[in-house]
Amino acid sequence: MEITGIFEYLYELLIGTGLPQVWVDIIAYAFAAVVVFGFLCIVALFLVWLERKASAHFQQRLGPMRTGWHGWRQTVHDAIKLLRKEDITPYAVDRNVFYWAPIICFVAAFMAYLVIPFGDGLIVSDLNIGILFILGITTFTIISLLMAGWGSNNKYALLGGMRSAAQVVSYEVPMVVSILAVIVFVGSLSMVDIVQSQAKIYQWYVFRMPFGPIAFITYIIAATAETNRTPFDIPEAEQELVAGFNVEYSGMKFAMFFLAEFVNMFTVSAIGATLFLGGWQGPWLPSWMWFMGKTLFLVCILMWFRWTYPRLRVDHLMEFSWKFLIPVAFVNLILAGFMKYSGWFNW
């Protein structure tokens, strides 16, 4: 089951055709992009199904059961339904802004996968600024939220869009700072280096007391807020008055926002697994299995939060981030720096 072997074989084939190197590279990267895109579409579909089944079992009911074995085809049916829906563009919207908002959201969600290591040697491109690149890309989502809010020409959508933008911006800071605490230890921004510095289980950053667990928990909370999930899901809450930035979207545009949310959830879980849980390290099983297992574990924890906790009010949310999480994250960073340069706990 050597996936890297398959890719190397295909690369050899390409070189064997005798094209100039530039073309070989372009075709290789295009192919990698298509593979990753396909993989992510399947993952998004799977996660939607998993969310519905998990929520059902938490609530002692069954979830989708009719479309395939335990309803595995449900998301496919939902996607087809959304494709067939009428794509309504309201009359007085700002056309360009309205049109490009979901696309930017979707693209930003997918671009982060350039540097995520799916396994040993399974990374599209090992940039030496890996984690910084991801953090920069996830900031793109804020632009798309603001564009959606403004472009909908609807005061409620604008309010909702601004609120979600405020939420995402204020939770970026603790997320970055908690990631920094790990980077201080690793010494490099490259994702592959981060994984390789966690070769043994006691070296995983989640176990490196005392800064590891605090950084991990801060990261999980900030990640939940970044992806607009309960308890921070004001933008999506149906029970609140302001319906959120995607109130005017229907059909495929809405599907793009929706899928982008699930892809984002997978992204933050993948980053968490890479940084804190050891990435693709693990005995006996192939490395990509370990990666998928750890990522899905974090995804399940995010779903668990959603189905247990009530929602935070907007001002509580901001208060929590600025008055609690950020100080904790900064203190943690100082602690991590101190631990690294004093040489204690440096195994």
Partner: peptide, 11 residues
């Protein structure tokens, strides 16, 4: 909430 994962469904 997790306790309910193991319970028999009521539907």
């Amino acid at each position: 909430t997790a306790k309910h994962l193991g319970r028999h469904n009521i539907c």
